[in-house]
Design a binder for these strands. Structure first.
Length: 221
DNA sequence: TGAATGATTTACT
DNA sequence: GTAAATCATTCAA
């Protein structure tokens, strides 16, 4: 099945490293959000393989972060995954039509997560295009959190999925060095002062970043 | 049981 | 630039 990534397939030639281990996710959420920029998001499903470089992500740090679904320690069937172990997936449904993909980080009981907002397509562009019902090569293929979920076929069935296990979804090491900048998060104006915190990380200049803010460079690697 | 709303996308002016 | 689409989740009653 779509278990471990092949060491000899097309990804092996393209991605230098294997599936990222749990230790990558079991760190402070701001570090994970920063470090996942440039990493590959890989899905190996029955329809084929799709992969993309993560170029935009946001940190959500409940229970104190008013913008987080886990604000105030709210623990429900919807938010439960965020309270679980790092390296699992938190997905949710918004606006009646869009899914959003999050990486759970930190320790058990710490409801922290990283929202993946955009990727640059690397592999499986035709499959992504078919799922998005548009031609491959358009920025609109994966330049938003709902769009990338559609391109990667992420949905309800992925709730709680373990990115560090044998599932068909994972992160892999960056194919090349990546500049990282930061800016305030998108769509969280209701969160008051928390909305101003620069917890959105992105690769400056990359055309797949959902919106292009003024780049405040964080680091170069 | 009902009403409000949202970590968005798309089409249209 | 604005607005519609569309429904699971949440909270009040």
């Amino acid at each position: 099945m779509a278990a471990q990534r092949s060491r000899t397939g097309p990804l092996a030639a393209m991605a230098p490293g294997p599936r990222l281990p749990r230790s990558f996710y079991a760190r402070p959420v701001l570090e994970v959000a920063r470090d996942c920029i440039g990493c590959l998001l890989v899905r190996e499903g029955a329809e084929g393989v799709v992969a993309g470089r993560i170029v935009e992500a946001e940190a959500y740090r409940g229970p104190e972060d008013r913008a987080a679904h886990s604000f105030g320690g709210r623990r429900t069937a919807r938010t439960e995954a965020m309270f679980g172990e790092a390296g699992r997936v938190y997905v949710f449904f918004v606006y009646g039509m869009h899914w959003q993909l999050n990486l759970v980080t930190g320790g058990v009981g710490e409801p922290h997560a990283v929202l993946l907002r955009a990727v640059e397509p690397v592999l499986g562009l035709d499959l992504m295009a078919a799922r998005r019902q548009m031609s491959a090569g358009r920025r609109e293929l994966t330049n938003g959190p709902g769009k990338l979920c559609q391109a990667f076929a992420v949905g309800a069935g992925d709730y709680g999925l373990d990115l560090c296990g044998a599932g068909d979804l994972c992160l892999a090491e960056p194919p090349r060095p990546t500049k990282v900048a930061r800016a305030p998060r998108v769509g969280v104006d209701y969160a008051g002062t928390w909305a101003a915190r620069p917890w959105r990380y992105f690769e400056p200049g990359n055309p797949y970043v959902s919106r292009a803010p003024r780049a405040t460079l964080v680091r170069r690697r």
